[in-house]
Nucleic acid binder design. Structure first.
Lengths: 245, 245
DNA sequence: GTTGAAAGTGACGTAACGTAATCTTGTATA
DNA sequence: TATACAAGATTACGTTACGTCACTTTCAAC
């Protein structure tokens, strides 16, 4: 029989917690002193450790109570249920992660966020997975699919995607200058280099991408991140100037 | 100005929620009727959608209030903070997933769970990542590392690992029979086949694995899942019998 | 016996509503 | 226009797993 102080010292668990576990009858003390102070034995210490461990697995106290007090608890089933629950949580977290990265990238490019618009995009994106695939197959051939994966994806932030985003963001920032301004032309040159690095000489593929990119509807259909019309026009003009030299 | 009923119909948000948002001053109605019924305008509808969207990103209502009412809110910083938070949550979830899978596999093999023991194993495992690597390098050569990855890992549940676990679990189940019993020998044969399938003719590597496996200390050092001594002895005997025929 | 630390018992606060009870308002119909 | 019934208002308790007072009592050392 050891005092509550000993228990907290050995386990790092607070007095309040032990009191609460007593209150909800999850872990009553082995006994009490005359004055009413709680006393714990070896068995209680072990149970306490079990409780702590099960908590790290995401079970709540009610479930833990069931598991530890019911002698015929079906551990296989219980663990599987918990794993299912955890997998759903994981899905949610991964989606949040992806959306947050997309928002941050969009912020870099556009300099602002229209939450309602973004939300609509996301809902649309979630709904039409099947349709989007069909459209992609319509505009691109199957042997283009590897190349499609190389296009910047707003929901990632690998270094490659980040550079594309940085470049587009810089273009947008300098749009007030003429399309032949040296800053613009420097950015275009870097975009040109990076295009060659990434896609080599697949001109046919790039032409198709550009065709889709220039059409807001087609872009939406295949799930490209929306870029405003004047930005696209500006880019095309600057690109043509670069190509002339 | 539309009624609360219209709002719930359009957004799917409950009356209670709207009342709560009014109460905490996150989204006060645009006005009220003479009798005190809440009325909302277009602006409020939009804000409501924004709130809902930000909630899906894991922000709490206090943060959302800050974001939407503070005109100079630093979105880049706010999103990055949230992403950091989410990444930590993801880490936790992944760890839980791995532990749960390990527990389920352990349950299949041993038929029971000693929570305190498993917890100790996990704590040990977390602490000594560095040491474990050193021990592995000591017992195995660098060119064995790919083969080490092929060994069953308790924290996964790919089909391969699952078959190893099922086989070991079946062995354990029939341990009361003699090591030359036909059931046992069938299982050993399958283990033999699978060993060849997986590791080919790397006999040297398998000898080293078996050497570590047979020593409880070495197994602990490199992080192998602990298997009881009598089980190991039983397996070795059955294996020898199989090899004689 | 004194005294200071440790423990006891309430009780409130937390986040974001759900739910129930009771009362009032809005509106469609007779 | 009186009435009935749906919809809304207010109030308040429940939820999870404790943290944090405030105040009182017990324990252990001197």
């Amino acid at each position: 029989m050891i005092s509550i102080k000993e228990v907290t010292k050995q386990t790092g668990i607070s007095v309040r917690t032990l009191r609460y576990y007593d209150e909800i009858n999850l872990l009553p003390p082995a006994g009490k002193t005359e004055g009413g102070h709680r006393l714990y034995g070896e068995k209680e210490l072990k149970k306490l450790q079990e409780i702590q461990f099960l908590k790290t697995l995401g079970f709540n106290l009610k479930e833990i109570d069931d598991m530890l007090s019911n002698e015929n608890w079906d551990w296989a089933q219980g663990l599987e249920n918990q794993l299912n629950y955890i997998m759903k949580e994981k899905e949610k977290i991964l989606e949040i992660e992806s959306t947050l990265k997309g928002l941050m990238n969009g912020l870099t490019i556009d300099g602002k966020i229209d939450l309602v618009y973004v939300n609509k995009l996301i809902q649309l994106y979630k709904q039409d997975t099947e349709k989007r695939k069909l459209y992609k197959e319509q505009y691109f051939h199957s042997h283009d699919s590897e190349l499609l994966d190389l296009l910047p994806n707003m929901n990632r932030n690998d270094p490659d995607t980040l550079e594309w985003i940085a470049l587009i963001g810089q273009l947008k920032q300098h749009m007030n200058k003429g399309s032949d301004a040296p800053e613009i032309q420097r950015i275009i040159r870097r975009i040109h280099e990076k295009t060659i690095e990434t896609f080599g000489d697949n001109e046919g593929f790039l032409d198709k991408v550009w065709e889709v990119r220039k059409s807001p509807e087609k872009s939406r259909e295949v799930g490209f991140y929306p870029i405003e019309q004047d930005m696209l026009d500006f880019f095309e003009k600057a690109w043509d100037i670069f190509m002339e030299n």
